[in-house]
Design a protein around this nucleic acid. Sequence first.
RNA 1: GCGCUUGUAGCUCAACAGGAUAGAGCGUUAGCCUCCGGAGCUAAAGGCUGUGGGUUCAACUCCCACCAAGCGCGCCA
Length: 538
Amino acid sequence: MESSELKAKLIAIVSREKIDFEKFDVFPSAKKEFGDFSTNLAFKIKKKDRIINAEQLVSLIQSNKWIQENFEKVEERKGFINFFLKDTHIYATIKEILSKKDAYGKSLSKKGSVLIEFVSANPTGPLTIAHGRQAAFGEALSRILMHSGWRVTKEYYLNDCGRQIELLGISLKAHYLRKRGMKANIPEDGYHGEYLKEIAEKIPDGYETKDAKFFEDFAKQEILKIIKDDLKEFGVYFDSWFSESELRKEGKVEEIINILQEKGLIYEQDGALWFKTSLYGDDKDRVLRKRDMSYTYLAPDIAYHENKIKRGYDMLINLWGPDHAGYVTRIKAAASVLGFSPDRLKIIIVQLTTLYRGKEKISMSTRKGQFITLKQLMDEVGPDATKFFFLFRRADSHLDFDLELAKKKTEENPVYYIQYAYVRAKHIIEFAKEKGITEKDVFSADFSLLKEEPEIEILKKLKKFPIIVEQASRTLEVSNIAHYILDLAGSFHSYYQKFRVVDANIKISCSRLALVECLMSVMGKSLELLGISKPEKM
RNA sequence: GCGCUUGUAGCUCAACAGGAUAGAGCGUUAGCCUCCGGAGCUAAAGGCUGUGGGUUCAACUCCCACCAAGCGCGCCA
């Protein structure tokens, strides 16, 4: 039973009596003494009808046959109406999880197609922790969206041309020449990081006279390789790599400027071309083409978004860093000019991560090559802990990442707490198998033997999983899942301590094993959604 | 100065589209290992949700002002 089902029924009951009401909610009860579902319907009855008070409303509801069939009890409390499900509903959850397994919580309704673009770091250096947070978030969000019925495409937008790339080429050439004892200056705003020196070493002798373009391409290729390797190690995969230089080669940037021009949204001033974004809520208009005829970042980016829109997705999601926050209005302006409702373009700003080593803040400077890379973080902390810390916090909040804490394999570290719960459940099931209890025994167990309070509590939490997934996909927020699973792991650890699962009483053992099986399945699925590994042993 | 984000227990964070007595973990204090893995469990203490107003039957949540922190405010990307 879902809250939407109950809500529909309540609407029917109240409408039949011609009672006027405002929009109301039916939601899973906050506490167990409030039952399974609660509604604020009594508050939402229009004032002129307040002759009907909550108590009268309750008796009206109680008199309904469907309600009587499904609920043990309906009661009013402080104006809320609480519904207590019959036990059969709660035990039905077990059957559902056991039979659906991995598909539990998967939405049956198809929600459409979505393109999610994230990381999209310039191929001028290795991925940093900021990219790491985006990568973890984007991957997890994609999995959640898929589980809730979206068709998801993950895309990496490659800014593989422009000034930064030129600088990269020049810098690499300088590194290369210096290696050979020649004088060469690395531009002030060029790239000084160690990784470029390493790349320079891969180029054999005899390329001294090659032009900057050669070095540019070489650097791009090598760095892209590094990026892809890091992502792979981090467990993040892209369906598509979209190249900006291809876009330019095909003349898409000129095309988009023409389109905007035809719509009268472009004008020339001081030798530059301006886009009238101020018509769409921006504080001022923005330059698309500079006086020197080269494009700003915005122009190809609009062309890129036009391309995404043309590909026909129902929703577009971009993950951006906080430095792009001011950019949201501009790109949404472009989207709406191109006939794509800005509501369908979701831009999630993934906030900064500050690294700490204990109390000490680690400062970073990207250009100078003083930064912690994702790779270093993974090597030190491990991919699972890294991901969990990134995902536990809401994307739009600043994150303080304590390296020391993340490294600890103790109770202070929630990753291990969760993984330990999973392994524990797995182990119990294996133990039961050794004792000769089969899957069939468990599946056909009498679930109504699960009468202990913690058992009911766990069942209710398991029942909530589909709602949590749905909510995460609606709000595009991943941290809910992380919190949910931590909570579930806690309930299980506590239960384990109090009750023996595999016991002398075979009947109880089987029904408890069913519960553990469900726990393992849902914990495993949650870990999977977050992209965190499910260990066999610890 | 303007804009965006954030402000909740000592610390790190929750709170489902405004709902009931604001919840976890860590840390602190006091306990629990003959038994399915103690990387675990039980319990206690800990709060004027940054401040002040407003809207509402109901505000951590919405609105206004202020305070504090971070980021942005280029014909850079």
